[in-house]
Design a protein around this nucleic acid. Structure first.
Length: 597
RNA sequence: GGGCCUGUGGUGUAGCGGCCUAACAUGCCACUCUGUCACAGUGGAGAUCGGGGGUUCGAAUCCCCUCAGGCCCGCCA
């Protein structure tokens, strides 16, 4: 070893010992003859003192040491002189008097400052990610992520789950997300797909009698990125046999509760987790992943709106639409400009406009649409929305999904502006009873909302038979927390007949079904146990627990919004020879692009 | 595919038609300094303002195109 101790571990009890340390120059304070260096490693900082009076040799070696140089030093740990202790440092009561020093490696001046946090253009941080990761904040996140994953592995193992690896080279499944494809050299013209999730394999493991499976599984989806979405991400993949919905929820609820208490004890969580149906979540919050740290619930004013003379409201209602509003406490003094900004927020959700009523301090209603309402109707609106003097009421009238999406956007934006989110609260909730089918306007077909192996709610089997697909609920559930979808799962179909009835409703021909799912259907004929599972997203969980609102913070080597790795420069062109081996040719568009660069 | 925001010495910002021969902070270099800890002090180097085109007597500043990063819509079973 090049060291006897780490920089962060030295304390009073080491006083008098001769130690050898290795680390990076965090900061250098040259007072002329005497030189102080803060030496840094993963474990912390320690102050080195280099005094030419006692060790002229070491002093001259370290003369050239600059930020981020890698040093090895030997010296005696001693108490700092009276009055010079630094209480900001864990090692602040001691220092190391250097007697021997070696520069293990010099360093160019780094493009980002390791000893100062953030602020740079993120592209620069990503290009020099190995430097960014040296910073205290990033090291804390990397460590926290390790602790979380380690806790999960131990906990799941103790509960009797087996961790089992599944292939990365998989079969393409055209439904769902776009696959990342890997060409086969042995079979030119054929492709593997990287897994979007180990969904089918974990179900097959249940058929195999594994009973309780988990995996810290990497998943890849070739879809566009968001602040909480990377093209590759990590899931805690779970599957269990002979279980019902409550059994799966119970496992995850206990895991999450114990995990948060163990790893981030400063976070407040409530237990048991509240449960909302999908319909209730959409109705009250306009979202299937509501942030329950604050209220600002959606209120239906259809009854009153229907009696008004406001055409936008009455027209929406007469064409199966809704009229809903949100009460924004204390925002009655919003200026025209502030309201316009909010309208822009509502438009992002698809609304064509946003009506508003400001309640003045004396209770009077100030609103461009007030003239379409009788004063008794205005009072009823104030009443159902529980409006108080000084509030602002905003309304959207449109088809239900647009009302939900717009008011969800407004609700989230206002929670931010009014600072209603408690940073140290993690409010988990279960969203249950998801619809089984989703109308796809583009293909004009019904798609499986979760996936086609998802169990139908037994109460809705009759609707399935009658082909009333919009009302069929699935035994599918999500775990949400602070406005994020944290996990998604379902009880699966183990009954071949019901499975067939689901496939009958989906836009697949018998040949397609055989081709895509034949192996699953065949497996299910050999005694598949009733089973179900769920998959919490590790990245989002870490985000939540380290107070980050960006997934790139919690992924050591993330990709940009255009799915590039700025450090490695991936993706990149490959040799003609590699393409030939795989039987691949670039088309004109691809060649023009590469030639033009 | 679309909307919005950002891009000025190494880094972060200011400047938003002529006062810019581009300012400030920090970092970097040199010198002084024996108890600092974001050391201090003095001096110095360093950017033609993401790139291209245009408008103008004059462009970092206005317009168009383009590149890069971000947020969002679509997409994400």
């Amino acid at each position: 070893m090049l060291r006897t101790h780490t920089c962060g571990e030295l304390r009073r009890e080491h006083i008098g010992q001769t130690v050898t340390l290795a680390g990076w120059v965090h900061r250098r304070r040259d007072l002329g003859p005497i030189l102080f260096i803060d030496l840094r490693d993963r474990y912390g900082l320690i102050q080195l003192v280099v005094d030419p009076a006692t060790t002229p040799e070491a002093r001259s070696i370290l003369e050239s040491a600059r930020s981020e140089y890698v040093l090895q030093v030997t010296g005696r740990v001693r108490e700092r002189p009276e009055g010079t202790a630094n209480s900001n440092l864990a090692t602040g009561e001691v220092e190391v008097e250097v007697t021997e020093a070696a520069i293990l490696n010099a360093a160019k001046t780094p493009p980002i400052l390791i000893n100062r946090d953030g602020g740079e253009d993120e592209a620069l941080r990503l290009k020099y990610r190995y430097l960014d990761l040296r910073r205290e904040r990033m090291q804390d996140i990397v460590m926290k992520r390790h602790q979380i994953v380690r806790f999960i592995r131990d906990w799941m193992s103790n509960e009797g789950f087996w961790e089992i690896e599944t292939p990365i080279l998989m079969k393409s499944t055209p439904e769902g997300a776009r696959d990342y494809l890997v060409p086969s050299r042995v079979h030119p013209g054929e492709f593997y797909a990287l897994p979007q999730s180990p969904q089918q394999l974990k179900q097959l493991l249940m058929v195999a009698g594994v009973d309780k499976y988990f995996q810290i599984a990497r998943c890849m989806r070739d879809e566009d990125l968001r602040a909480d979405r990377q093209p590759e991400f990590t899931q805690l993949d779970i599957e269990m046999s002979f279980v019902e919905q409550d059994d799966v929820l119970d496992v995850v609820e206990r895991l999450m509760t114990e995990l948060v208490r163990a790893v981030t004890p400063h976070k407040q969580i409530q237990s048991p987790f509240p449960r909302l149906t999908y319909a209730e979540a959409i109705d009250r919050y306009g979202s299937d992943k509501p942030d329950l740290r604050y209220g600002l619930e959606l209120v239906n004013i259809a009854e009153i709106a229907a009696e008004s003379n406001f055409g936008v409201f009455t027209n929406a209602l007469s064409s199966d639409g809704q009229v809903k509003g949100i009460r924004l406490p204390g925002c009655g003094t919003y200026s025209r400009k502030q309201i316009d900004e909010l309208q822009e927020v509502a438009r992002i959700g698809g609304a064509k406009g946003m009506a508003w009523m400001a309640i003045e301090a004396d209770g009077a209603v100030r609103s461009p649409i007030a003239k379409f309402f009788e004063s008794a109707q205005l009072e009823r609106i104030k009443d159902v929305m529980q409006a108080e003097d000084g509030d602002l009421l905003v309304f959207v009238a449109d088809e239900p999904m647009v009302v939900a999406a717009s008011l969800d956007k407004v609700r989230r934006e206002m929670a931010k502006r009014l600072q209603l989110m408690d940073k140290d609260a993690v409010v988990f909730a279960w969203v249950v009873d998801f619809p089984m089918f989703e109308w796809n306007a583009e293909t004009e077909n019904w798609d499986a909302m979760h996936h086609p192996f998802c169990m139908v709610n037994p109460e809705d089997v009759e609707k399935l038979n009658l082909n009333q697909l919009s009302g069929v609920r699935a035994a599918a559930y999500d775990l949400v927390a602070n406005g994020y979808e944290l996990a998604s799962g379902s009880i699966r179909i183990h009954d071949r007949a019901i499975q067939q009835r689901i496939f009958d409703r989906l836009p697949y021909s018998p040949e397609e079904i055989q081709n895509r799912f034949g192996h699953m259907l065949e497996a299910f004929e050999y005694g598949a146990p009733p089973h179900g599972g769920i998959a919490p997203g590790i990245d989002r969980l870490v985000m939540l627990l380290v107070d980050s609102d960006n997934i790139r913070d919690v992924v050591p080597f993330p990709k940009t919004q255009r799915a590039e790795d700025l450090m490695m420069n991936a993706p990149s062109p490959v040799d003609e020879k590699q393409l030939r081996e795989l039987g691949l040719l670039l088309d004109d568009r691809a060649r023009a692009r590469l030639g033009g660069e």
